[in-house]
Each structure stands twice: as C-alpha cells, then as structure tokens.
Design a binder for these strands. Structure first.
Lengths: 223, 223
DNA sequence: GCTGCATCGCAACTCGGGGTTGCGATAGCC
DNA sequence: GGCTATCGCAACCCCGAGTTGCGATGCAGC
C-alpha cells in the first residue's frame, strides 16, 4: 500500500538517482527542483485528486479519471506517486495545512462558537468531505494515513485547547477541567451529524453543540 | 485470519422467517420456494459475509473469499444476491435486528449508563465494526444502504427515547428537554472515539459520555 | 427406490481499474 | 539551439466484479 509519502515541503533536494529507485518514494526525491513543467503537473494532479475526492466516493476514484481531469496521462501520475494511496495522502497533506481558525474573542462562548462554526464549515466543504472520505475508507489502514489522521486531529485539538485554558484563567470555566474534553465535546456532535445521522451541519448545529458542551463543562460534566 | 466470529450458531434464524422482508427487497426478482438446501446456503453465506466484513475493510472484501468461506461457489452467491452491495445489505439487515438493549433501571443515570455501555460494546464488537465499515464506505451511496442506515440509527434512537421521557416524568430532567438530543449527546462521543480519535471505547468512556450528557441536560444545554 | 426439478459446482468468459514498461515526442533550462 | 528530464502513448499484466452454459447433485413427492 501507500507507504511513505512525505510532503515535499519548502526545502528538498535529492542527491543522485536520476532514474527513480524504488526507494525514491512518491516524488520527494526529485533530482532537480524542476519548477517549470513538473510543478505545474504536480499541482494540477493534486487539485484534480481533491476534486474527485470531494465527491465523497473514495473507492470510486480512479487514477485514470484524476489524470484526465488534470489533463495528464495516467503514466505520469504513476511516475510521480507510488500508488493511489500515496497520491491521496499527498493531496490531503496540503489540505491539512488549511486549518480551521482558532478564534480569540475574549469569551469562551464566542471562541467556541466561532470554532464550532469553522469546523462545521470545514466539514461541509469539499476539503472536509475529502479528508473524511479517505480517513474512513479502508485506506485508513495505510501507515501514512494513520499518521496523517493523528496529525490532523491531534494537532488541531492542541491548537484549540488555549481557548479553554484562557477561559479557566478568566474564571469562565471551573479549574480542573479537561481542555481537550471540552473541545471534543464541541466537535463530536458535528462529526456525528456528518457521519451518522446525515443531519445538516450548519451554524445552528454548531451553536447547539457549543451550548451543550458549555453546560456540561460548567457543571462538572467534563474533566 | 482470526476465526469466524459469527457462526450462524444454535441461536435463532431457523427456517422461520425471522427476517422476512428486507432480504427479498434486495433480490426480489428471484422466486424462493426453497426451504431445504437453499436456506442453509443462505445463512452460511450471510455469516461468512459478516465474518469477512468484521475482520477486513469493506473494499478488501471479495465475493470469492466470502463464497469460499461459506463453502460455496462464487456463482451461487451471484445467483442469490444481485451484487456485492446487495449481499452486504442483506447480511447487515440481520445485524440491525440485534439491538442494543434498552434498560429500565429506575433512574436516568442507570439507564443511560447501561445504554452507553451497550453501545460501546456494540461499537467494539465485530457487528458494530462491520456496520460502520459499510456505512462509511462508498457503498453508503447505495439506496438500500441509505435506508438501512436510517433504519439502524433512527429506530435505535426512537427505542431509547423513553429513557428520557421517563426521566422527565420522574422529575430527574427538566421538562421541555429534547429526548433525541440527550440520546445523541450520549452516543456522539462514542462514535467520535471510534471514528475520529481512535481512542478506546470502553465502559469508562461510556460513563463519561453519560456524565457529560446529563450535566448538559440538567442545565439547559439540551433541548 | 426412482424420477423431476430446483439448485449448486465449475470453467471459461467479459469488463474495468490498478500498476508497469519501453519508446518516442516535447518542453524547459543553460 | 542543443541536452536532458519529463511527458504521452500504447500495450501489457494482474485481479476482482459479474455473467453464462452446462453438467452434477441434492431434495422433494410418489
């Protein structure tokens, strides 16, 4: 399956192998930056992958369709990415960076409300759909994806926790509360709606989840 | 390669049509006067499907493997079920009947705690894994599965709501509360753990979700 | 026990998607 | 304008979803 497909990042430099050795994973070890044609192909294919993925049907995604959509030949895709999983992981890696904004309005209510609405919007959008489609597909077994999964949710959680710690400092929430538990309590109903009940994930749903989470948090239900 | 987890067993599912209609909806085109050999094949294939489903991911399930496991030829499977999706829907229809018990202990706390623990056990077990694997796969687009999904979760929800209405009558929870919201507040964190954070879904997690849901419910967070 | 019919086993097939290979065409950089 | 990496292309392999025709067999009823 997929194996390592690390996002290239800003600085990469592959030493020798002109002909991609098998260890030359996905596309990280490009010999030269090749900013000309190569990068254009790369972004086009990645965008096409996300577009196909946004249709929420992971298994229905064919490499040939992605290639055609990107105006590229199937072989070219396989020359740059090890396999379908690698391509998807790489495409999603870009989406992971597009984080949900962590607000700082001065009150927990405001912060959580904005956070929840941001999460709801993300879940509603093509990016969230694509990430969820892959995360919950059988491809989630792939090691690269397991890491990406942790990267998405844990990092996102960690970035949101200051909302709660600030609230505790302000006296809005009781000390001894578990920040992560509060964030999860906000997020869980929204994921639940998307994945299980197929109810709409709108601002109203976001607000309700915040209300419930705060009610629980203020009365010892969390932490 | 672990052994089959769900043998048809000495339990139910005799010749009596305990699960009558839903199966026929899938392969309605076929007349079925067969009660002798046919039923044995049917239960064997269905059990094999569940077993494969529980230990593998959805997309890795091959009809050939199911047939071999059931001691049957692939053609026979296709003669009884329209396609792979139909087979899976049918297999899961039997699992839907295996409900999570709805307790009645006399207190909301007790009821919800048992309910949550039952749900957690189901999510942990092969049946829950199989249902979730299919529900969240691309097969969820299939019309039969959309119906099955609603059947599973909505019916289950409706059966659990009396827990809350009883609690309101006893004065344990404020009137005007939304019973469905409370049940969902109990369930959502457990699904969240299974699907997103991959945290264990044990009795402790179940209890925590109940505590949070009740804290929210008693303080106007739900309803 | 024997026969008739439904069902099952089997092999051989089509179709499509994943993934590979060799070669020729081309576009970018120097 | 040349050099070389990259791309397009066609042809190929492998495997799993479904299909088909035919022969074998189990299960009635007699």
């Amino acid at each position: 399956m997929s194996s390592d497909s690390l996002p290239p990042g800003p600085g990469r430099s592959g030493p020798a192998p002109s002909v991609p050795a098998p260890s030359d994973s996905v596309e990280a070890g490009r010999v030269r930056p090749t900013i000309g044609r190569g990068e254009k192909v790369r972004t086009a294919v990645l965008a096409a992958t996300l577009a196909e993925l946004a249709e929420m049907r992971y298994a229905a995604l064919t490499v040939d369709a992605v290639a055609r959509r990107a105006g590229v030949h199937k072989t070219t895709v396989y020359r740059r990415w090890k396999d379908k999983d690698g391509l998807i992981v790489d495409a999603l890696a870009g989406q992971i960076a597009a984080e949900i904004p962590i607000p700082d309005t001065g009150t927990v209510d405001g912060d959580l409300r904005l956070l929840a609405r941001g999460l709801a919007a993300w879940l509603r959008g093509p990016s969230g759909a694509a990430v969820l489609a892959v995360m919950l597909s059988e491809a989630a077994q792939a090691p690269g994806l397991a890491a990406a999964r942790a990267q998405i949710f844990d990092d996102r959680l960690q970035r949101a926790e200051p909302i709660i710690t600030r609230a505790v400092e302000r006296g809005e929430l009781p000390a001894g509360i578990d920040p992560a538990a509060v964030i999860k309590a906000v997020a869980a109903p929204l994921y639940f709606r998307v994945l299980i009940t197929a109810e709409p994930v709108d601002d109203e749903a976001a607000d309700r989840s915040v209300t419930a989470a705060l009610a629980a948090a203020r009365n010892g239900g969390l932490g």
